[in-house]
């Protein structure tokens, strides 16, 4: 973000307008932070205090027990190891899925924007419509397809599923980004005798950093938070962290420890949060490069 300079006016003094700007931002921030406040407060209270129902109050007897419990000792069935159990499974699903779906998106986007292939745009249109269908509709037929091919319930299977469902978004992102790149670069490379792949690797890919970061952020959020695909396709040995999270927060008939629920949810969101924070500047600049130019 620092890299791209703000375009607004730059007053030097604290004027009424400046105060107004900060007042607006602070008020909005309060609205956005409200549920977080409730969650943090709840996570720091013992259950007796939560039952009283003063959701906005500061804890009378503050305790971090719920946090440690959520991470490492809450029961999620027979095992009582908190949500930390699935952390590495989630990482193992996340990394190949993000990388592969970005590669697929980049290659598709490149082929769609610079090369004329018959029917490619029709294919893309259908893909785009697919982004609007609730995933759950796909589950049953996909299970049948995967069990026929013998990869059902494996790491490979869940990665392939994430790549498949990332295709519309990723293709769209890259296609639009590439369409905004100056065509002269591509022409020059063609005159130099570059082929499909050599132009992609030598010319196009080096220029794709911002959009790759954008794509990575979107995919990290989506895949990290996925529950239903992981549950259906990953197999028991690979269940992601969200399955443990769901086990903690979503029991139908069991008693509920809201403090642990809240702590677990915040812990589970840490990875995407860190990704947002670290790559914020790229995130914004990448989208700008992809969708504003041209």
């Amino acid at each position: 973000m620092n890299a791209a300079e703000p375009q607004g006016r730059r007053p030097h003094r604290l004027t009424v307008g400046r105060i107004g700007v900060y007042a607006f931002l602070a008020t909005s921030a309060l609205f956005f932070l409200l549920p977080l406040w409730i969650m943090v407060m709840t996570s720091l209270k013992p259950m007796e205090e939560i039952r009283l129902g003063n959701i906005l109050a500061l804890p009378a007897a503050m305790t971090f027990e719920a946090w440690t419990k959520a991470w490492s000792s809450a029961c999620t069935g027979l095992e009582c190891n908190g949500i930390s159990v699935g952390f590495w499974n989630s990482v193992r699903i996340l990394i190949p899925s993000v990388i592969l779906s970005i590669i697929a998106g980049a290659v598709n986007g490149y082929a769609l924007s610079f090369w004329r292939v018959k029917g490619a745009n029709v294919m893309f249109g259908i893909l785009l419509l697919g982004a609007f269908i609730p995933y759950q509709v796909f589950l049953y037929p996909l299970v049948r397809i995967f069990s026929l091919t013998g990869v059902y319930n494996s790491l490979l299977c869940i990665v392939v599923v994430h790549v498949i469902f990332g295709l519309p978004t990723m293709t769209l992102l890259f296609r639009n980004y590439y369409a905004g790149l100056p065509l002269e670069l591509f022409k020059a490379a063609r005159i130099d005798g570059g082929g499909f792949w050599s132009i992609f690797f030598r010319v196009i890919l080096p220029m794709s950093t911002p959009i790759i970061v954008v794509a990575a952020i979107l995919q990290v959020t989506g895949i990290w938070n996925d529950f239903i695909f992981g549950l259906t396709f990953a197999g028991r040995q690979n269940l992601p962290m969200t399955v443990q999270l769901n086990n903690i927060v979503n029991s139908t008939q069991g008693e509920r420890a809201y403090n642990v629920d809240m702590a677990a949810t915040m812990l589970a969101a840490l990875v995407p949060l860190v990704v947002y924070f670290v790559s914020g500047r790229w995130f914004v600049r990448g989208i700008a490069a992809g969708a504003v130019k041209g």
Partner: peptide, 9 residues
């Protein structure tokens, strides 16, 4: 199974 709360576990 779907027994995941503390008591159910």
């Amino acid at each position: 199974h779907w027994w995941t709360s503390a008591g159910e576990s």
